[in-house]
Design a protein around this nucleic acid. Structure first.
Lengths: 209, 209
DNA sequence: ATGCAAGTCTGCATCGGGTGCAGGTTCGCC
DNA sequence: GGCGAACCTGCACCCGATGCAGACTTGCAT
């Protein structure tokens, strides 16, 4: 349970030809979808077009992504994994609140999900297309549940409902604040982070008494 | 494109024949959907079946509800309206946090959305069927946004990001706590109401100091 | 009651997302 | 080289959703 290299797992000695090809067309699909979504919009882009742009059959698309939405969240669990790692690396003196806040700060620094061709398109679509926003919320909710689970395991004396309330408060505050902050198209990441930190600090102050 | 019936204000001296008929078939649709969903499951029930059970044409269903999901949330805005009312009735000495705490507690008390034929079915489906869960999150998010808007109007000096973070923290805490408490299969309205009360009470405790 | 306009209901055609199936192709491995 | 498994693909099909046009109902004024 040591070795917290976030990106590369320690096991990839044999990425067989099959897997390499598969990964290549997977990336091709993501890239093609990003380009098409950016150019034509989400609803106006059909799965058939994405598949054609990546040079695979329409039917095959669904063996890579369960549905159209999923191509927008190819690395959805990165942030959750970071948070779980932060919980695992906790200091014995840290309270649950402190761990979560630290995890959030870490995630805001190096967010692998914030780069890549999909990131910019996704954040824009998540605010405009209902289907995409629903998917985003769904992903967030799943991650939230997992964090609650890890938190209750790390702190056995912590009540499950309390853990859920704490996690919900933090992610809820961050999500809502981001929702408002993202209305500005051009804002500097540094200022954004500072602003986010201030707002969450204010909202969560009672938890850090 | 009808969509929004402005939900019975205190003025109903003249519910014309047309409107009465329309409301009747609307309720018939909700009842039929509840029965079918409970018996066969959500995905296994087609819109055509719901419409047939309510004795209207398949096409007409979509003049009552914009999509299949919507029939599950016929009174979705009840809680939001209660919260908005609580904000409107605020005491001049109350801080934003106090208002929100009071509003959410009040919304937990008289929740018209927990009665009706759909309530029990919905809470079960919301945990099992992805589409329904997505819809539930979407509804919640919209309500949250409206609360933020009302809050910033009531407190003009309150920063929008801070208001969003605060609202997100409170609703997120309540929502997550409720999510944990609703894991039990029991679905009687009385039990649901009790759990809703407990969840809000527990989740809001850190803010009422 | 009669006629008209607005509001409603309905079937039909059509489109896009998504799935099951069957057959062909490629890959991994012996 | 050859065999079995994994994979790709087109086809047919279902369901949700929308546009359209025609028919019926309601409200209202004459």
């Amino acid at each position: 349970m040591v070795c917290v290299m976030p990106g590369r797992q320690q096991t990839d000695p044999a990425p067989s030809l099959r897997e390499r090809k598969r990964e290549r067309t997977r990336r091709a699909l993501v890239a093609a979808a990003a380009k098409l979504f950016a150019r034509k919009g989400y609803d106006e882009t059909t799965v058939a077009e994405i598949a054609a742009a990546a040079e695979i059959g329409t039917r095959t698309f669904f063996s890579y992504f369960a549905n159209k939405d999923d191509v927008l969240f190819p690395d959805s669990d990165a942030r959750v994994r970071a948070t779980l790692a932060a919980i695992a690396d906790r200091d014995p003196a840290e309270r649950p609140v402190d761990v979560l806040v630290r995890a959030l700060a870490a995630a805001a620094e190096d967010d692998a999900d914030l780069v890549g061709p999909m990131a910019a398109v996704r954040t824009r679509l998540a605010r405009t297309v209902p289907a995409v926003r629903g998917k985003a919320l769904h992903v967030q909710m799943d991650g939230q549940r997992e964090i609650v689970r890890a938190l209750t395991e790390a702190y056995p004396e912590l009540d499950r409902v309390d853990a859920a309330a704490l996690t919900g408060a933090l992610t809820g505050a961050v999500g809502a604040a981001l929702d408002v902050l993202m209305e500005d198209e051009d804002a500097e990441p540094a200022a954004l982070r500072a602003r986010l930190r201030k707002a969450t600090d204010l909202a969560l102050r009672p938890w850090r008494d």
